[in-house]
Amino acid sequence: MTILVPATSANLGPGFDALGLSLKLYNEVKITKSSLSSVSINGEGSDNVALRKNNLFISVFNEIFKDLSGSDENFRIVFDNKIPFSRGLGSSSAVIISAITAAYFMAGFKVDKQTILNKALIYENHPDNITPAVFGGFISAVINNNAVVFNKFEISNELKAVVVIPNKPMSTSQAREILPKSYTIKECVSNLSHAAFLTSCFGAKRYDLLRLACKDVMHEERRMNALSELFEVRKMAYENNALMSSLSGSGSSFLNIVYADDAKNLQKKLSEKFSDFRVEILDFDNDGFILMQS
């Protein structure tokens, strides 16, 4: 089997741990039964020898496969990774979703996407990351009785993402330590109102209001202080017709949403200014992961 899982961008300004979307940048995993176990890694992580042994996919896959089948078997697994590690683009969620899906399939079980999503909560308790990886689109999600409940809006193909990927990673756990232990009522109300408004903008396709809607006062700028260039990224994006510019996940990547006609110009300006960073134009993914039998 082959599985493709898309990158995701979560938090989306005020939507802390609640809002996320999916991007057409994929990790691909091919897995076949074999007489001997083997792991090959291409793309992101290919130079990390330790990943062949200390691999999140392997641990999740083996745990679920054994639980379902009651047996240990050998597999040849080939990773072709396009999603960068520790850059706020959902690499961990992509690994978890692909591992769960592969385990069910190789154990001979047909399972729906909702089951896979709920199972993923065991390994990743942030629904804004895992839900768009499974279902695609723009997602507003909550957890209820150990299950993810969500609404999805498809993102128009008139939009593009211009994603800035710095050469420095940001650890999610360290990024959380930066945040205060409590917030004022004013801060909470600001984020609640802007997150609700942001969701309604995607639902109504009022993309012209995204800049106002994505205002955050809880986490974004505190995390951006760890890489001060991100303030200039946001400033330049808005000066060049970005509809929305926000930290992707906990960073260090930055998500800029533009109309398709403005994408190349923004990519050019950002690439010239930040020559050490990758700047990619990506489409939005409205489908989530894809499973293919071979």
Rank of each mutant, 00 (worst) to 15 (best):
91 S>K: 03
78 V>W: 01
63 E>K: 13
59 S>A: 14
87 R>K: 12
54 N>F: 14
10 A>S: 08
75 F>H: 03
59 S>I: 14
83 I>C: 00
66 K>I: 06
57 F>V: 10
51 L>C: 10
80 D>A: 14
74 N>G: 02
11 N>I: 06
13 G>Y: 03
46 S>V: 10
69 S>M: 00
42 N>V: 12
18 A>I: 14
79 F>Y: 09
67 D>P: 00
9 S>Q: 07
22 S>L: 12
44 E>Y: 09
45 G>N: 05
4 L>G: 06
77 I>K: 00
20 G>Y: 04
3 I>G: 03
15 G>F: 13
80 D>T: 14
85 F>I: 09
37 S>F: 11
32 T>Y: 13
66 K>S: 09
56 L>W: 08
82 K>W: 03
37 S>H: 08
41 I>P: 03
28 E>M: 13
66 K>Y: 09
14 P>K: 04
93 S>F: 12
60 V>S: 11
24 K>S: 09
13 G>M: 05
40 S>T: 14
60 V>K: 09
86 S>W: 07
90 G>C: 00
40 S>K: 14
33 K>F: 11
62 N>G: 00
46 S>F: 09
56 L>V: 14
37 S>M: 08
82 K>S: 11
32 T>S: 13
89 L>F: 05
63 E>N: 12
10 A>P: 00
21 L>F: 10
92 S>C: 02
34 S>A: 06
52 R>T: 05
70 G>H: 00
17 D>Y: 09
41 I>K: 02
92 S>H: 02
48 N>W: 15
36 L>E: 15
55 N>I: 10
84 P>F: 08
35 S>Q: 08
78 V>E: 07
93 S>C: 12
75 F>L: 02
65 F>A: 01
71 S>W: 01
27 N>V: 05
38 S>V: 09
69 S>E: 02
86 S>F: 05
49 V>I: 15
3 I>M: 07
42 N>G: 14
64 I>T: 03
67 D>C: 06
49 V>P: 14
26 Y>D: 08
20 G>N: 03
56 L>R: 10
79 F>C: 07
83 I>Q: 01
19 L>I: 01
43 G>N: 02
76 R>M: 06
71 S>K: 12
86 S>Q: 10
